[in-house]
Design a protein around this nucleic acid. Structure first.
Length: 372
DNA sequence: AACGCGGGGCA
DNA sequence: TGCCCAGCGTT
């Protein structure tokens, strides 16, 4: 069997398999380009089961591009809370506004135009064009590279930029006439359900017969992928600053900077401390770092007792955080200013915290504190 | 080409 | 508990 026959076999059998076995997912119930676009952005680096409830809430609150374009950014961020990579949400809203203004409220249907939108790279562009408009463009994500690397025994490192190009060219050649949307979704569906990273379910695979990796017994060795660097550790100490008097039952929160990690999300005031400060014996030293740093922000605190320990792993950083309860130390606040706070600080209680978007690590601490 | 950017699932 | 899952923007 030559290469062209193997390609033809793959395309035909994968398409037929998908049409029979496709999961009934919320974003597969319409061809609304805007809804498909939302789902594809949410699905970047995020699994289907996680995305489903977010997709429902998001499309219910912002059913049209007009609704999303006109919404305050904080509300968009709040609906994205817990999903991670928050620039995806801001880019999506910015791109939708762009579509409203420049494309008359219609998601562009050409590769050139759609690729100019913020947050729309080669994968998302191909996915939206093929699924919403049935245009024969490849949509190469991690699933697709895994499937293709195995079936065609491609041993290039999939983390390399050039490998993407090889995969895209191949994926485009494989698209059956008039069936780009179903074929591309089938490729990803196979990667998610059958051709899994570990212990692939080859016996149920529609293209096992001609899978090169399977023939060589190499399905577990592919794709070849350079390992990511391990996250660097950071030691942090966070303050649960408890209000008193009018602020009884409230906790002080702080908004993060406009740019960078967790941009514009809300958090507990905290500081990074040098290695060694965060262990049991070092806690007193790290508390003084916290007190001094917050004093510079005109927040005077009197440290109380340890509340909990929290760990959180990002792709590139590991946070090891001690959380201590504190009370306010009014003497640090300049006299005459009363309870005036910097504008990026805010008191919240168990009800009003719902209005602010927090990264999961702080959400968990606050939920525990308020017994939610 | 290398790095920054979140969060969750599985053995 | 340690391993895995990865698109897009920026530099």
């Amino acid at each position: 069997m030559d290469t062209n026959e193997k390609k033809q076999f793959f395309s035909e059998h994968l398409l037929a398999w998908y049409r029979k076995h496709r999961r009934d997912l919320p974003w597969r119930r319409s061809r609304n380009p805007y809804h498909i676009w939302i789902s594809e952005v949410m699905l970047q680096q995020t699994r289907v089961d996680t995305v489903i409830p977010y997709f429902h809430r998001f499309t219910e609150r912002f059913p049209t591009m007009e609704a999303l374009a006109n919404a305050p950014e904080e509300e968009v961020l709040k609906l994205w809370e817990g999903l991670g990579y928050y620039s995806r949400a801001r880019n999506l809203q910015g791109a939708v506004r762009e579509v409203q203004e420049r494309y008359g409220g219609v998601v562009p249907d050409t590769l050139k135009e759609i690729s100019t939108l913020k947050g729309v790279g080669p994968y998302t562009a191909g996915a939206v064009l093929s699924i919403a408009y049935n245009k024969p463009e490849p949509a190469v994500d991690g699933n697709v590279m895994r499937v293709l690397s195995r079936y065609f025994l491609i041993e290039e490192d999939i983390m390399k930029i050039g490998t993407r190009g090889i995969m895209e060219k191949l994926a485009k050649e494989l698209i059956p006439e008039g069936a780009a949307g179903d074929f591309n979704q089938g490729l990803m569906e196979l990667g998610a359900m059958v051709c899994t990273p570990r212990s692939p379910h080859c016996l149920t695979c529609p293209v096992m017969e001609h899978c090169a990796a399977r023939e060589m017994g190499m399905e577990e060795e592919l794709p070849v992928k350079k390992k990511a660097k391990p996250p660097r550790p950071e030691y942090r100490i966070a303050a649960l600053i408890e209000g008193s008097g009018p602020q009884e039952g409230h906790i002080l929160i702080r908004q993060r900077p406009q740019e960078g990690l967790l941009a514009r999300m809300w958090e507990l005031p905290h500081v990074e401390v040098p290695f060694g400060y965060a262990d049991a014996s070092g806690v007193p030293a790290s508390i003084s770092v916290l007190t001094e740093q917050l004093a510079l922000e005109t927040i005077g605190i009197r440290p109380g007792q340890g509340f909990m320990h929290a760990e959180h792993t990002f792709s590139h950083i590991h946070w090891d955080m001690q959380v201590v309860t504190c009370s306010l130390e009014p003497s640090v606040v300049p006299s005459g200013t009363g309870m005036l706070l910097p504008s990026h600080y805010q008191w919240v209680n168990r009800d009003t915290m719902e209005q602010y978007a927090f990264p999961n690590v702080f959400l968990k601490i606050l939920k525990r504190y308020f017994s939610l």
